[in-house]
Design a protein around this nucleic acid. Structure first.
Length: 861
RNA sequence: CGGCCGGUAGUCUAGCGGAAGGAUGCCCGCUUGGCGUGCGGGUGAUCCCGGGUUCAAAUCCCGGCCGGUCCA
């Protein structure tokens, strides 16, 4: 079968590009592509961030179509333009192990694309035009001879959708995929969709590589950076033919790439060079390639708001940084990563100016991550030593695969590092080829529990949309409404309501529903599809009844202060700590609320104070707060993705909450919550606590309004109480506490000194009676500390002494060397319950002292 | 969100059911012309918190807090 791709066909363009058209840079190819499609009626769209904040199913954008999922692809929202062309930076970590090795894999790439969205009433174009565009672009724009281009038909499936597709290949390299998405996959069957989408993807880097014909894609894309990095690290330029051939063969043995050592030998053999020489040449090259690829991807991520972390999207950034460091370490490259990043950022400046803007943040975070990783690696020798000893205890000569997996999983130590540390302990460790699949087996996927709906959607599907009075007037505290349906005697649906349903981090309102003949407490309110369901306690109103709803206003007004306060606070945090601050979660509550933000260190008390000052300045300025509903595309175009602080907003129209006047707004966010009219109503914003909840995420716990006052009053009360206890005034609280602590310390020291003196005196006056060839002394003392001291002095002075301390129903036996075991045995017979070992025993004894003495004497004779 | 590992003097670390040990740091002597060094002495720990099991818990069990790490 002819497939035209790796591994069937070796690349035919290396050292021999298929065109005479000369391109100078990656940017030129991008520009040619976008201009070409602009000439053919497409609108150019600005790239989206690589962090998919508008989605809750993925962290990163992996293809241009991600930009339009799910709202556009489901038909809910119109595309920003139609047809459109874009070059979308995308990140895929699925092939991360092959990067630097296969010669063609990248974690970050630009997917150039043209998309057409065909609606039943508006047809743009379909298969014929799409293939023609592709053909013309490659032949006319890039000058590739027609016979060099292969279109391979196939079926594409992904994300619940499917459709036919063409893979476009040139000399063994897949340069584009043209997908015609028009099925939904339902229960394994294809269901025709009303919306038919042309989804194309042209690999910018691959096309550039093809045109350049360099040994690897990295040489083409990162050429200038690699040259400088070689100079800096002292890694020499590799022999051209070796790298070219190596990447061809590596490309062909993709599936086995993990079994690296074997792959090296095989390829060296194929090329006809010495395996050891080959390894020494290739390893540092691979490290540089990984560095080049990963540093660009990480820079994109950080510039778009990712902070390296131990969880979430941040972990992916950390993973790439650590992989880079590990590869450099293995290749023996010892240059600070920051310097190499900085070098690369200078090269990236022209193509990605927004990444350049984040330069200082990127460098700071990379430096921090490098430091943290060094700490991890520093733990290697002792962790490995411990593991080796543990293995030996269980009779194993060395570490096995399970031990290596455990070390990686719990301590973050990669097997190569472990092997190296073990070697210096004189232990040979073999790294198994299937290491990474063993690791994967340890992380068996858990099933995601689908959220249980309050009421089945089917039971309310026929009802009209509930009118949302809380949006029309957030200050409405009571309203009249008609009962449309009552389910299970406790779920009430009204035609309209002022009760806010839980959402956007704001909890549901509570209150009462009053009706002729009774009233019911509203304890929870939830959205179910397009209606709002009130969960009631007590006798629910009958269907069809007129009710008066009364919202618990004190609580709700408090929540509104919290919610508007949240917006003021997050913007203030951003202004103080920097533009990398994004909301990572929030919960409004009474009496305290919290916001989690992306930040890489705990803010200092000064920064917190500055944030409070700024936020309360906004409160005092009494700025107006507006909520307006706007089409999604318009809002995104006007404000950018900073809108999505609170997470996914699942609608075609989004509600935008703006604080401050139009000409100079303080903050703008997409938000579905209830807000105040003016910031002055917040009264006071007080941060109560900041804590690090994960690497890269800081939690602010704060309060507003009267709750803030109550908090401050409580602090004041505590200070007054503490001052009273410390015996000073509130003004001198710190001084009196200091004195108190000092006095306590002195008192402890004195007590200890006296205890020593007392123990010495006791030891002096101990009267031992003979017991066999030993001496026995019994002391009544109900202080274990003192007893220990006494025993220490007495038994070290007289090795034949057996000291028995009786007190509080307990008996302790101390000896200066005499084995305590026979004594314990004898004592058990007279009611002693306890035990010990060597020179000490302890236990419970309730009998009289004479019996005890006799028993011990008897045991010793 | 979750799995795994860990939390013992200021710092690092041993002990993993029976009287909390070492290294480093700090203080005081001696050594030296002085610094380093060396030697001797001293100082420093609610064994993360709470509950349980036990005659006895740093140690075993449960819960929490904090840190590390891996995976989504």
């Amino acid at each position: 079968m002819y497939c035209g791709d790796q591994p069937c066909v070796p690349y035919g363009f290396i050292g021999n590009p298929p065109t005479k058209v000369a391109v100078e840079s990656l940017g030129e190819v991008r520009e040619r592509f976008l201009r070409f499609f602009e000439r053919h009626g497409h609108t150019r769209i600005k790239r989206y961030p690589v962090v998919a904040r508008w989605r809750d199913d993925v962290y990163l954008v992996g293809a241009s179509i991600y930009d339009f999922q799910p709202w556009v692809t489901s038909g809910a929202v119109p595309p920003p333009a139609n047809p459109l062309a874009i070059s979308q930076p995308s990140i895929r970590l699925t092939d991360v192990d092959k990067v630097g090795r296969s010669g063609r894999h990248l974690t970050g790439f630009e997917m150039m694309a043209h998309h057409a969205f065909n609606y039943p009433d508006k047809f743009i174009y379909w298969i014929d035009e799409t293939t023609e565009y592709a053909y013309e672009f490659f032949t006319k724009e890039l000058g590739i001879p027609p016979h060099e281009i292969t279109f391979k038909e196939s079926m594409w499936e992904g994300g619940g959708n499917a459709g036919e597709c063409f893979e476009v290949l040139v000399r063994g390299l897949e340069v584009a995929t043209l997908v015609f998405m028009h099925y939904e996959v339902k229960d394994g069957k294809y269901v025709e969709l009303p919306l038919k989408i042309v989804d194309t993807g042209y690999g910018l880097e691959r096309i550039y590589w093809l045109l350049k014909g360099t040994p690897t894609i990295y040489d083409a894309v990162f050429g200038p950076f690699l040259a400088k990095a070689r100079e800096k690290t002292g890694v020499p330029e590799p022999p051209k033919d070796v790298m070219g051939k190596a990447s061809i063969y590596f490309g062909q043995m993709d599936p086995e790439v993990i079994a690296l050592e074997k792959a090296y030998d095989l390829i060296a053999e194929k090329i006809g060079v010495d395996p050891k020489w080959f390894r020494d040449v290739v390893r540092p090259q691979e490290a540089l390639y990984v560095l080049a690829d990963h540093s660009r991807t990480v820079s994109w991520m950080i510039a778009d708001g990712v902070i390296p972390s131990n969880s979430g999207a941040g972990y992916l950034a950390r993973l790439l940084i650590r992989r880079t460091l590990r590869n450099m370490a293995i290749a023996g490259i010892d240059v600070p990563l920051v310097e190499l990043f900085d070098m690369h950022l200078k090269e990236l400046r022209a193509d990605y100016p927004e990444v350049w803007d984040a330069r200082s943040l990127i460098l700071e975070l990379v430096e921090l991550e490098e430091k943290k990783y060094r700490e991890v690696l520093k733990s290697a020798p002792s962790a490995v030593k411990k593991a080796v000893e543990e293995a030996r205890r269980r009779g194993k000569p060395s570490l096995d695969a399970d031990d290596l997996v455990a070390l990686y999983d719990s301590a973050g130590l990669p097997p190569e590092i472990v092997a190296e540390a073990a070697k210096s302990l004189g232990v040979e460790v073999k790294v198994p080829d299937d290491f990474y699949s063993r690791l994967a087996a340890r992380h068996v996927k858990r099933e995601k529990q689908p959220e249980r709906a309050l009421v089945e959607m089917a039971k309310v599907i026929d009802l009209p949309r509930t009118r949302e009075l809380f949006y029309e007037d957030p200050y409405m505290r009571s309203f009249k409404a008609k009962v449309l349906r009552v389910l299970d005697g406790r779920y009430v649906v009204l035609d309209q309501t002022a009760f806010y349903p839980e959402g956007g981090g704001q909890p549901a309102d509570v209150g009462v529903l009053k009706y002729a003949g009774g009233e019911a407490k509203v304890v929870d309110v939830q959205r179910v599809g397009h209606v709002i369901v009130h969960v009631v306690e007590g006798q629910p109103p009958p269907e069809g009844a007129e009710v008066v709803g009364e919202v618990d206003w004190e609580r709700r007004y408090g929540l509104m202060k919290m919610h508007t306060g949240t917006h003021v606070l997050i913007q203030s945090i951003r202004r103080v700590l920097g533009p990398h601050i994004w909301q990572a979660g929030a919960q409004k509550d009474i009496p305290s609320s919290r916001i989690d933000v992306t930040h890489y260190k705990l803010p200092t008390p000064e920064e917190v104070a500055e944030i409070e000052r700024l936020a309360n300045g906004v409160v005092q300025a009494d700025l107006p707060v507006y909520a307006k509903v706007m089409p999604r595309n318009e809002a995104e175009a006007k404000y950018g993705f900073i809108l999505y602080q609170g997470g996914v907003v699942p609608a075609r129209e989004i509600r935008v909450v703006q604080i401050g006047p139009d000409e100079s707004p303080y903050d703008v966010q997409a938000c579905g919550g209830t807000h105040l009219r003016r910031t002055g109503e917040i009264g006071l914003i007080k941060i109560q606590k900041v804590e690090r909840i994960a690497d890269g995420v800081v939690r602010f716990i704060f309060t507003t309004g009267m709750h803030a006052l109550a908090y401050v009053q409580e602090l004041e009360r505590q200070a007054a109480e503490a001052a009273a206890i410390a015996g000073g005034s509130r003004e001198s609280l710190v001084e009196s506490v200091k004195k108190l602590a000092q006095r306590a310390e002195e008192a402890e020291k004195r007590a200890k000194r006296y205890a020593e003196l007392y123990a010495a005196a006791l030891a002096e006056s101990l009267k031992g009676e003979p017991a066999g060839r030993y001496k026995l002394a019994v002391v009544e003392l109900d202080d274990e500390e003192l007893a220990k001291r006494l025993a220490q002095t007495a038994t070290s002075r007289d090795k034949d002494l057996i000291l028995v301390v009786v007190g509080g129903g307990r008996v302790s036996i101390y000896t200066g060397g005499v084995d305590v075991a026979p004594i314990v045995k004898a004592l058990r017979e007279v009611g002693f319950r306890g035990g010990g070992s060597k020179t000490f025993a302890q236990g419970q004894y309730r009998g009289d002292v004479e019996t005890l003495k006799e028993a011990i004497k008897k045991a010793l004779t």
